[in-house]
Design a protein around this nucleic acid. Structure first.
Lengths: 242, 242
DNA sequence: TATATTATAATGTACAAACATATAAATGTT
DNA sequence: AACATTTATATGTTTGTACATTATAATATA
């Protein structure tokens, strides 16, 4: 047989099968839509169990490389590809693009004990103080966002930094912390009295709420950020393709 | 026990387990790094075999939602990898994954003249009628989103289509229209009387407003979609890296 | 006290065996 | 010829079982 599997190798059989399949589906005929040998048959040929073979196939199916169809069989999927969109600007940069000049008219830095959520996110104990930065930004007399940011001690912030500079630039230049990954959650909320006060709106008024989790290259948590945007002052844009 | 699995249901056990896990890991504690019950234990609790449970966990691991570690256990991944073309699920698909069954309790199809914005987007004249589809969706007696969708004439919809089927699938299968690009704008708004009525909330209550522009492979406009989500019923998640 | 060593608890790998389900193809019926 | 029915074949689901591997926790040793 053309391909086979080494049962003596320390490499797991399903991994060997996966590699073998990847090679196999590179072949012209398979690329052009020929169905693979059926699972039972192929498993027998490779002298592995069907379960093990399926383990390998599953992975490729999940990657979108293979497509399964009952009765018909499994074959190489036709059009694949995936891309991703990016949005990695700090708030001031984002606003600048829209021709809006931002004022920071409240900037407050304190050291606080993290609550459970924060301690968990940062993977630290609750008795270890962390830096909290709050700020209100907007046009003068018209605040439109309140932020609360928490930073991991690892970052080494003292609280004396110049927070008026673009944040991620500052972290990179002065602290060698490179934020590479972020996860955001966006939802709508009614303003609490605290937020209403900060944004000069009424309690219950709509706000856009954005949670942002920032990580460094090693997937270590860097910043935990909560943003409350006055309705209509902020539009979040996402582009995606498939 | 808090969650459980229905052995009588026609839904495969591993799918049920998957949904259940997705719900589970939405909980704060798990999101913040608590490890899941170990496989053997969890399988016993859910009264399914470990193999079946692993099938479910595997899927989430492939998606990058969970991370396994020997001896330590399995937990929700922090840094996340964003694998699947997941921002490309239709509403019903998105909800299904969360184990929520959606009712369409208002579905309305009409032909309308586009306003300036629409005509511009579709690059057509304002005297050419286009198909408008409105719907309210949610759990029964608890609507949580109102949609209005407009389709380009090019798509060739007659209005008699079965809009209960997943939209993009339908477009693809029955109309050979493949939506590949989307641009979305998300903001918070106060409910108008119209929206308040649709969502059974009060005028002025917060809603998440999502505009969605959908294009085909040739970047030609396909759909213009407006969605009004009841506050807290919907969280928009974005992952990005640089 | 610091460093090896060993035990333990979690995931990882692998098999065999049944039965379920969807669908293409073959067959039968009108 | 058009339609309905059956059958065969491929994937899909599920269980039970066994042993391997690895990283942490507990223990023993220098």
């Amino acid at each position: 047989m053309k391909y086979s599997i080494d049962h003596k190798s320390p490499i797991p059989l399903h991994v060997q099968a996966e590699v073998l399949l990847r090679t196999l589906i590179e072949e012209e005929e398979y690329k052009n839509g020929k169905v693979l040998p059926n699972e039972v048959e192929l498993a027998k040929q490779l002298a592995i169990s069907r379960t093990t073979l399926r383990q390998a196939i599953n992975k490729l199916v999940f990657e979108g490389l293979l497509v399964r169809k009952k009765r018909t069989g499994t074959k190489v999927s036709q059009g694949v590809v995936s891309s991703k969109s990016n949005n990695w600007l700090s708030f001031s940069q984002e606003m600048k693009l829209r021709g809006i000049t931002i004022k920071n008219f409240e900037l407050h830095v304190t050291w606080v004990f993290p609550d459970e959520t924060l301690a968990n996110f940062f993977e630290i104990k609750t008795d270890r103080k962390i830096l909290k930065m709050e700020r209100v930004r907007g046009k003068l007399n018209e605040p439109f966002v309140y932020f609360a940011s928490y930073f991991h001690p690892r970052v080494g912030l003292t609280g004396d930094e110049d927070f008026k500079k673009p944040l991620y630039e500052m972290l990179e230049n002065d602290h060698s912390v490179i934020a590479t990954l972020s996860k955001e959650e966006i939802s709508a909320k009614a303003a609490s009295s605290f937020i209403a006060d900060k944004l000069k709106i009424k309690v219950g008024d709509p706000v856009l709420f954005r949670k942002r989790f920032v990580f460094d290259h090693g997937e270590r948590p860097i910043e935990y950020n909560l943003g409350y945007y006055k309705a209509d002052s902020f539009v979040y844009t996402v582009e995606s393709s498939r």
